[in-house]
Simulated scan of single mutants.
Amino acid sequence: MKIAIVTGASSGLGRAYAKQLDRLLHPDEIWLIARREERLQALAGELGCRGRVLAMDLKRRESVEVLEALLAEERPEVAALVCAAGFGKFGRAQDLTAEETGDMIALNCRSAVEVTRVCLPYLERGSRLLEVASCAGFQPLPGMNLYAATKAFLLRYTQALRWELRGRGVKVTAVCPYWVKTEFMAVARDTANPDAVRHTPFAMRPEAVAAWSLTMNGLDLAVATCGPIPFAMEVGSKVLPACVPMALWDKLRRM
Rank of each mutant, 00 (worst) to 15 (best):
C119Y: 12
A79Y: 02
G91T: 05
A174Y: 07
F138V: 04
V187Y: 01
V187K: 12
N145I: 02
L154Q: 11
T173E: 01
P201I: 14
M185W: 12
A149Q: 04
G126N: 08
M104Q: 15
P142A: 03
G91C: 06
A196I: 07
M185A: 13
D195T: 06
R189N: 11
V172N: 10
G143P: 10
A149P: 02
A106W: 04
T173A: 04
A196F: 04
V132N: 09
K151N: 11
G167C: 06
F184I: 09
G86M: 12
P140T: 14
G86I: 12
A93Q: 10
L123G: 10
L141C: 04
K181P: 00
T150G: 05
P194Q: 15
Y147I: 05
R125I: 00
T182F: 05
A93W: 13
A84M: 04
F90C: 11
G91P: 01
R110C: 06
M204L: 13
E207V: 09
R198L: 13
A211E: 07
C83I: 06
C176P: 01
A186Y: 00
L155H: 12
A85E: 05
R189F: 06
R166P: 00
E124W: 02
D190T: 11
A84R: 01
R198A: 13
V113L: 15
L81D: 02
R117N: 11
A174S: 14
E74H: 14
K89N: 13
C135W: 03
V78R: 09
F202V: 02
R128I: 13
R168I: 01
F90P: 00
P121Q: 10
T191R: 05
R110I: 13
K151F: 06
F138L: 06
G143H: 08
A148M: 03
A98L: 11
N145K: 04
D195Y: 04
A203V: 02
A133H: 09
C176Q: 03
C119T: 15
K151P: 08
F202W: 11
E114N: 15
V115A: 04
W163L: 15
T158L: 08
R92N: 13
L154Y: 08
A79T: 02
Y178K: 08
V78T: 11
R117Q: 14
E77P: 00
G86K: 13
A203E: 03
P142Q: 03
L141N: 01
A160S: 15
E99V: 14
R189Y: 00
L129G: 03
A160P: 00
K171D: 03
A152I: 00
E73K: 15
F90G: 05
V175M: 07
A133S: 15
R205Q: 15
A211W: 02
V170T: 09
